[in-house]
Simulated assay, not measured.
Amino acid sequence: MNDLEHDELSLLKARDTQARVLLIDDQLIVAEAFRRMFAAVDGIDIHYCRDPAQAIEQARSYQPTVILQDLVMPGIDGLQLLDLFRADSVTSSVPIIVLSTKEDPKIKSEAFALGASDYLVKFPDKIEVLARIRAHSRSYLAQQQRDEAHRTLAKLKVELERKNGELEALSCRDGLTGILNRRGFDEYLSKEWLRAIREGRELGLLLVDIDCFKTYNDNYGHQGGDECLRRVAYTLGSGLKRPSDVVGRYGGEEFGVILPDTALDGG
């Protein structure tokens, strides 16, 4: 790993653990107070949004781990903005700390009912607000990591099932001719046999053997014999008319053809 890659990895790790705070308040003095509060604190980055009408858009762009928002703002009521955050797919699970000028049980109850994660009266003690921001941020990031792990596991499960399906299909195929091998042939015959008994239907079965194959193989070698087997398999397969009809290599130069719903006269 070169120095550039190392620096990029370090930045990504730092972003994964850093608390990113989106502050939404129409008063510049409040923003400045929080900026000074966080100025000398490691691990916390703050982004200020003065216009609540732009809060959702800026949250989508900034991707905060914690939102600090005032309750009383022009244009959009703080409780209304809280409801909008919870309705948005990007911000629905981001912790939101509501800021208020007074300790009002009714307002606090409404805020929590709409999905607030915490409630602070301005101006909170520095130690207290930092502790709450870090706690909410850690909890949110941990949940994001768990969700990502679950998504990754789900994708891996789907991929594993697909691979297992491919392996299962390959295990039932003859490597030389590409048609069903003895195992696949027997499984399909057993399934169709039981279905024919259950539904009272006919089941056609053909067994085909290549005459004098050993002599042919001795004269033209194994490559010539293999090519002969492939051509016979192709000829038998190309003569099938329905998806339910199958051909398999029963063993050596022996082939089988299964024809569901087919009587002795071919009807």
Rank of each mutant, 00 (worst) to 15 (best):
M1A: 07
N2H: 01
D3K: 00
H6R: 05
H6N: 14
L9A: 08
K13T: 10
R15L: 12
R15A: 04
R15G: 00
R15C: 02
T17W: 03
T17P: 06
Q18F: 08
Q27I: 09
V30Q: 11
A31R: 13
R35Y: 08
R36E: 13
A39T: 08
A40L: 10
D42F: 09
I44E: 04
D45F: 10
H47R: 15
R50E: 07
P52Y: 00
E57C: 06
E57M: 08
A59T: 09
Y62W: 15
Q63Y: 11
P64R: 10
I67A: 12
L68M: 03
Q69C: 10
V72M: 13
M73E: 15
G78Q: 09
Q80D: 03
L81T: 01
L82Q: 02
V90I: 06
V98N: 00
S100M: 03
E103K: 10
D104Q: 05
I107V: 14
L114Y: 02
G115L: 08
S117A: 12
V121E: 15
I127G: 10
V129M: 14
A131Y: 12
R134W: 11
R134M: 14
H136Y: 10
H136I: 08
Q144L: 11
R151P: 03
T152H: 02
A154K: 07
K157S: 01
K157F: 02
E159G: 07
E161R: 04
R162Y: 08
R162G: 11
G165Y: 04
L167C: 00
L170V: 00
S171I: 05
D174P: 05
G175M: 08
L176S: 04
T177N: 01
I179M: 03
I179Q: 09
I179D: 07
N181A: 04
R182V: 08
R182M: 04
A196S: 13
G200R: 00
R201G: 07
R201T: 15
E202P: 03
G204L: 03
C212K: 15
F213V: 01
K214G: 10
D218N: 07
D218G: 02
H222T: 08
Q223T: 00
G225S: 09
R230I: 02
R230K: 07
G237V: 02
S238Y: 06
G239T: 05
L240R: 00
R242Q: 12
V246G: 13
R249M: 14
E253C: 15
E253F: 07
D265S: 14
G266T: 11
